[in-house]
Design a protein around this nucleic acid. Structure first.
Length: 524
RNA sequence: GCUCCCGUAGUCUAGUCCGGUCAAGGAUUCGGGGCCUUCGACCCCGUAACGCGGGUUCGAAUCCCGCCGGGAGCACCA
């Protein structure tokens, strides 16, 4: 029975509703009326459970970031809903000078997917499939749907804006075939000739007028080198591969809407019925200001600490900060398939993560910029104290830490409190001296009482056994401080809450005399 | 400028297709209180929204028209 309950509790609300509805009865009604916390995901038209095939198509030029996360988790959501398959298709056509394919990112992206728990059912590389695009191009040409244009790119653009035809547009089909063969036979250099789709120059959408299907590039591809010179554009390659790979539903960002129309246009021309398209809007996390290209530069230059640097906001970096993929998934799915562009504060993601870790995360004391405080008249026999690991969760146990008379307090906590009585949290009350010391100095405070007074309560670390700690912050900055002695037992991967600082993830354990405890700041 | 898309509280979202059960639900933020985690955890309570103007209707967040605002595309990038 309990196993059944656990299973039901673990189900996403949408699936719960589906299942209850299939059972029928009053439960179904209640579930349907229950308020939804998540976003809305429409049914996929024509989807047959077990037969749905989706695809992820990243361009290997960087680590996946939270925006890509939306692609990942939406596809994953539908895969689960319909018991479908997900193909990972690296969109590694030749790109451009600015946007290059790099080998290292194939592995990195597969790692990202694994971390996200999205296991593709198969992996493909566009670059393996280039030759196959040529006969398809020929089919389009045979239908009279394309022509070879040798206009310079700028002229092509101008004509497109004006809706003007160039001389090449009136090519006969045979001429096009001949020119196309010449393109394939290396008669043209890069930029000298392209195969263009013949749409309608009067099309109201200037973006849709005679777009380019294939072009010539001599860029050295990391997987296939210079084996091919004629490369497909994204739209054409997908017009082919969405059919060849048997994709049943294309889910993509709304920046790609015009590509839908291109693909459909080509399919109509060839008498093919392709899959339907669904889109989502742009998702931005307010704090994630670093653009992908900048992150790329900073990682390359070494200014950032690799793709897991917190400043990249890559999925890898969030994992490093102890933000679970499950939290990221819920966060992302809460936006549904909305087409409006959204900017959401990172706090919303943090809240999602907190729900998962707060109840199970032990509390530890840490003070930044520590000031040594000697407490005069500190009670004899109070050499240690038993503290709860979690204020509301006794089941998380306790730990014993050694106390005074020597302590470290955070300088920030001391500021403005000279000469006042404060409480060392969970311990004793002391009176601070009238003057605070310069950096590195020691102050003497005086023990006053042990009663629980409602006065400012300060975080403290017992001087005996205090461990050095280094926190890597979200801006890549390091904060040095001291933590309680129990931190000697913290291991890489542990998630802790430094009280009044925030949740951190341990990256490197403390080693006597060699290394401080290194942690990465997660979130408040 | 042209094309397409989107407008529910500070932010995100449910509801809009099939008008009444929505004097609009949830999350987060914010405010107040609690707490030996004060600011920034956690718990409790609370504030807060249908972009504007017309129309249809007994009745509109939901349907129609106009306006305004925001975004994306207009690359031989993806």
């Amino acid at each position: 029975m309990s196993a059944v309950v656990a299973e039901v509790v673990a189900l996403p609300a949408s699936e719960l509703i589906d299942r209850l509805s299939s059972i029928g009865g009053p439960e179904a009604t209640r579930a349907r009326e229950a308020p939804s916390t998540g976003g809305d995901f429409p049914d996929l038209v024509g989807a047959v459970p077990g037969k749905v095939v989706l695809r992820l198509a990243p361009f290997p030029s960087g680590a996946l970031h939270i925006g890509h996360g939306r692609m990942l988790f939406i596809n994953q959501h539908y895969r689960e809903k319909y018991d479908g398959k997900i193909l990972l298709v690296f969109d590694d056509t030749i790109g451009s000078e600015e946007k290059r394919v790099e080998t290292e990112f194939f592995g990195l992206i597969e790692k990202d997917l694994e971390a996200a728990g999205v296991r593709p059912d198969a992996v493909f590389y566009k670059s393996d499939r280039i030759a196959n695009f040529y006969p398809w191009a020929r089919r389009v040409i045979d239908k009279g749907g394309a022509y070879v244009c040798t206009c310079p790119a700028e002229l092509l653009r101008e004509n497109r804006a004006r809706g003007a035809a160039c001389a090449h547009r009136s090519q006969t089909r045979d001429e096009t075939i001949e020119e196309w063969e010449r393109m394939l036979a290396n008669a043209y250099g890069p930029g000298e000739a392209v195969l263009r789709l013949r749409t309608d120059l009067a099309d109201p959408d200037p973006a849709f007028r005679d777009r380019v299907l294939l072009r010539i590039s001599d860029i050295d591809h990391p997987r296939v080198g210079t084996k091919y010179r004629v490369w497909p554009m994204l739209e054409f390659s997908w017009a082919v591969d969405d059919i060849e790979l048997g994709i049943t539903h294309v889910l993509r960002g709304k920046d790609l809407v015009i590509e839908d129309r291109m693909q459909r246009y080509i399919w109509d021309l060839l008498g093919i019925t392709g899959p339907p398209f669904l889109h989502w809007g742009i998702l931005r996390v307010r704090e994630a200001k670093v653009a992908k290209s900048k992150a790329y530069r900073e990682v390359k230059s070494g200014l950032f600490d690799g793709w897991a640097d917190p400043r990249t906001w890559s999925l890898l970096s969030l994992d490093r900060r102890g933000i679970s993929m499950d939290a990221i998934r819920s966060f992302i799915l809460s936006f549904g398939m909305s087409l409006s562009d959204i900017e959401v504060p990172a706090e919303t993601l943090y809240a999602e993560n907190r729900k998962r870790i707060d109840g199970t995360t032990v509390r530890r004391a840490f003070v930044a910029d520590p000031v040594r405080v000697e407490v005069d008249e500190f009670p004899d026999g109070l050499s240690s104290v038993v503290l709860s690991n979690h204020p509301d969760r006794p089941e998380l146990g306790t730990r014993t830490v050694s106390t005074g008379p020597g302590f470290f307090l955070a300088r920030k906590d001391l500021e403005g409190r000279a000469g006042t009585e404060v409480r060392l949290k969970d311990l004793v009350n002391v009176e601070l001296p009238a003057l605070l010391p310069p950096a590195g100095g020691t102050i003497r405070a005086r023990f006053t009482s042990r009663e629980n007074k409602r006065i400012p309560r300060l975080q403290w670390v017992g001087a005996s056994g205090a461990r050095p700690v280094d926190i890597l912050g979200m801006e890549g900055e390091h904060t040095a401080g001291l933590g309680e002695a129990t931190l000697a037992e913290a291991h890489p991967g542990d998630i802790l809450q430094f009280e009044r600082v925030g949740f951190v993830r341990v990256e490197k354990n403390w080693t006597p005399g060699a290394s401080p405890l290194r942690v990465v700041f997660g979130h408040p």
